[in-house]
Nucleic acid binder design. Structure first.
Lengths: 229, 229
DNA sequence: CCAAAAGTGTTATGGATACACCCATGA
DNA sequence: TCATGGGTGTATCCATAACACTTTTGG
């Protein structure tokens, strides 16, 4: 046998579908759009696109996220491949990625262009194909990841307050967290840098801004310790 | 736009590669084979095959595992999609699955047929393409999964001894486990059924056989509890 | 001065860890 | 009888969970 072995094999369109996640109004949001073509024209859909021959799958996913958000600085992780035979009209195999973005960097002009909008994770509409399953799998994965890796910060701007950070985790895990225990854990890990400035937008007293210190985090890892909830 | 949207898109060969895992001689083993065709003919490879148009990806993976092992009763979970552009001669996108099998059910005649052999996880040779990466990712995933789900039993026969089970977990986590703590944890979960028979193959005293009780496990889950290490 | 959110410590509990000796049996 | 692997219980420690009041300040 030789390269001839590759002949006469079925080939597939390969797509990427991106679960683009942002944090706003104390809740996770996902970017969805009205599908502009048949089949299922007008149905709610994740952001997707086909993989081109000369690009890696992850590159394709990144391209899609940039195209639909205008945001370049993203955290991207594969969720998995979805290939049920009845998932589209033509046989399409889709690889799902979730992206964590700072929603404040969203290019709002793209919302009109693609008929897209951010919907609350708790109020997700019915999506086409197996996109709801992709979101569900993403949330499970995200909960596992954020519990042991400091990737949640990718959903926030450079600086953020502890109350905001707590809200973020509460939205990810869909359960309340004790304020004192949360702060204690985060601060004793010593991976946050306290700033002098305060955010007064949500209280009269104001909450101090912090920022994530990657250098300190890397030290933590090298000591054999790890981020935890 | 319409179905015409699907025209002029690049299409890909889609393969599945299976990390087939068995447990023997107190250590995890993986089934690898000499690749019978170019390119990289003679290189060590995972068990793979192409996805056919009328089958789901997971079905294809299952087909491959059955083809190369003769074992039908397997635990199968997706690891992820691998699609770097330089990973094969032709552009092939591969979806990796790991399979947990009872190695005693292996059809040894297939070893000759496919020039395949079981190699210790600790002595894995260099594999073709990105197969070593797939194995690495699999081990990470397997450690996470077996720590919280009772899937390890898929690597053993119907009945097994506690010392064997402990060896299994030690091989998965690549670290020693305290005997008393291990037994305490397993037995207090009350998901194992103790049999009267003993296995005397590895000691004069003999070790009692146990078997996994799925009904009791399901009860445990319904009580909001879960399997843990 | 009051409403609303930010910030702060201590105690109790339970799961995880560490640890050493006796038992059964075939050779 | 002895070498080998199987089987058993307890004390300690540390991480988690529960819990309430003071501070700040704009309106």
């Amino acid at each position: 046998m030789s390269a001839a072995f590759y002949k006469n094999k079925d080939s597939f369109l390969v797509a990427v579908d991106c679960i683009i996640i942002g944090f706003r109004d104390n809740e996770l949001h996902i970017l969805v759009a009205r599908r502009p073509f048949e089949p299922f024209k007008g149905g709610w859909s994740l952001m997707g696109g086909f993989v081109n021959a000369p690009e890696n799958i992850k590159e394709a996913a990144k391209r899609v996220v940039v195209e639909f958000t205008g945001i370049d600085d993203i955290y991207l992780e594969q969720v998995g491949a979805y290939g049920d035979i009845d998932r589209d009209v033509e046989r399409v195999i889709s690889v799902a990625y979730y992206a964590l973005v700072d929603i404040d960097q969203f290019d709002t002009s793209l919302a009109q262009k693609y008929d897209a909008r951010w919907v609350r994770i708790t109020q997700l509409p019915e999506l086409i194909f197996d996109h709801n399953m992709m979101v569900k799998d993403t949330m499970t994965l995200l909960q596992r990841r954020t519990a042991v890796k400091p990737i949640g910060f990718n959903l926030l701007g450079e600086q953020f307050t502890l109350p905001t950070l707590q809200c973020l985790y509460e939205s990810i895990f869909q359960e309340p967290i004790d304020k004192r225990n949360f702060r204690k854990k985060l601060l004793t890990m010593d991976i946050l840098e306290k700033l002098d400035e305060k955010d007064k937008s949500s209280s009269k007293k104001g909450a101090f801004y912090y920022k994530f210190n990657k250098e300190k985090y890397d030290q933590l890892i090298q000591q054999g310790l790890h981020f935890s909830l």
